[in-house]
């Protein structure tokens, strides 16, 4: 009889603990989904939700403050996203707050990000609509990347042709780098120019001392000073 009572108490404890664990689990999952908290609803109209699903998180200042309640196609180009937000954050979200769609990490789920808006603006009300920022579409990014990649490819192929020509000694720069005779000639030309300019300077000095040109040179000096 005693054993029977002990067994019954054991069974009762077993069942109670099991159910308690289940209820705790449900409570924590429900809490994450804002089931046991006071909430309010806001909506935003997007052109493209980029795979956002009901149940995805809504983040405000990096904190999860709610979940996406419902996503409905309203017209052929607009999608309405309803969000259930924790009542405690209502005072921080202003009427001109902006909603955008982002990703949780590199490979994570889609999330709605709410930017708070200006502090001078009025606080948001239940069932209000907030402005939606145009989400960055990965397809657009990839398209732009493709154009950049094409341009880079063209530039590198042109550069390769130029480098090839330089190596072959074609063109002025090619001759400069690769043609030793041209380089020697260039060196000689520079020496000649140097010598020529020295000779010219000597001539000009001599001319300035000549009585025939003295007057002409003196007339030009005030004109230089005026400039």
């Amino acid at each position: 009889m005693k054993k029977n009572t002990g067994n019954k108490i054991g069974l009762g404890a077993f069942v109670t603990t099991g159910l308690l664990l289940f209820v705790i689990g449900i409570y924590f999952i429900g809490q994450r989904q804002q089931l046991f908290r006071e909430t309010f609803q806001i909506s935003a109209i997007f052109k493209n939700v980029n795979g956002l699903q009901p149940g995805n998180n809504v983040r405000f200042s990096g904190i999860n403050v709610g979940i996406v309640n419902n996503i409905t196609q309203t017209t052929d180009t607009t999608v309405r996203v309803d969000m259930q937000i924790d009542e405690r954050t209502r005072k921080f979200i202003k009427k001109n707050a902006k909603a955008s769609i982002g990703t949780d990490g590199l490979m994570g789920n889609k999330i709605v990000l709410i930017a708070p808006g200006t502090s001078s603006e009025k606080g948001i009300q239940n069932d209000d609509f907030i402005e939606a920022a145009i989400p960055i579409n990965m397809d657009d990014v990839l398209l732009k990347l493709k154009t950049t990649e094409d341009n880079a490819s063209n530039i590198t192929s042109d550069l390769a042709v130029i480098m090839k020509n330089i190596r072959m000694g074609k063109g002025t720069i090619g001759m400069l780098f690769m043609d030793t005779v041209f380089a020697q000639n260039l060196g000689v030309a520079v020496v000649n120019v140097k010598q020529g300019s020295q000779g010219f300077k000597q001539n000009m000095d001599a001319a300035s001392k000549s009585f025939l040109l003295k007057g002409l040179l003196k007339k030009k000096e005030p004109a230089k000073k005026d400039h």
Binding site: N4, N7, K8, G10, L11, F14, V15
Partner: peptide, 10 residues
């Protein structure tokens, strides 16, 4: 039923 539940569960 209670006896079996104890034997099967606990």
């Amino acid at each position: 039923f209670a006896k079996q539940s104890y034997l099967i569960g606990n």
